[in-house]
Structures are given as C-alpha cells and as structure tokens.
C-alpha cells in the first residue's frame, strides 16, 4: 500500500472532500492539520511550492487540491 499524507485545515471543504473520498475508497492516510503545526505547514509549502490546502502526498507524488482524476491515477484506482 502506498503511503498517503494529507495536509489540511479543519475548515477547508476540499480537504474534507479528499478525506471522505479516500475513506470511501478504503485508502489509509495520515492527516496533518497545518493550522496547528507550523513546521508541517512549511513542509507542505516546500513540497508543493504553494500555500493552498489540501495537498496530497502519495509516496512523493504531490497533488494540490481535490483532484480526483490525478489521485485515482497515482493510486491506480477508479
């Protein structure tokens, strides 16, 4: 199973959608709340080169926003 990390904020609707989607597909992920963890927020900005949430890291593949097609492609699901 590929390791999936989601950088999110509690109020962000698209973060919730990404998490709901992965849960629905039974994909385990680590959820990092960047609103309380400044170091992780910086890590997210460094990884993605931008400041918007959600950022999904699937074993080094960085996807910004809730991009269902890209997530499916990288995870090999549909």
């Amino acid at each position: 199973m590929k390791k999936v990390i989601i950088y999110s904020t509690p109020t962000c609707p698209f973060c919730k959608q990404v998490k709901d989607y992965l849960s629905e597909k039974k994909i385990e992920f680590e959820d990092i709340d960047v609103s309380v963890d400044q170091d992780k927020a910086q890590e997210m900005i460094d990884k993605s080169g931008q400041m918007g949430v959600p950022v999904v890291d699937i074993k080094g593949e960085i996807i910004t926003g809730f991009d269902k097609d890209k997530i499916n492609k990288v995870l090999g699901i549909s």
Binding site: T9, T11, C12, V34, S35, M51
Partner: peptide, 18 residues
Amino acid sequence: DGKGVAYCSTCDAPLFNG
C-alpha cells in the same frame, strides 16, 4: 497564485499564521 495570493480564506487562512 497559490504563492501568497489566495481565493479561499475558509481553506487557507491558517497558513498565514504570523
């Protein structure tokens, strides 16, 4: 865009901490 210019405060406000 995305590098400090943002369009969703509900989403991204916490990233502008400090």
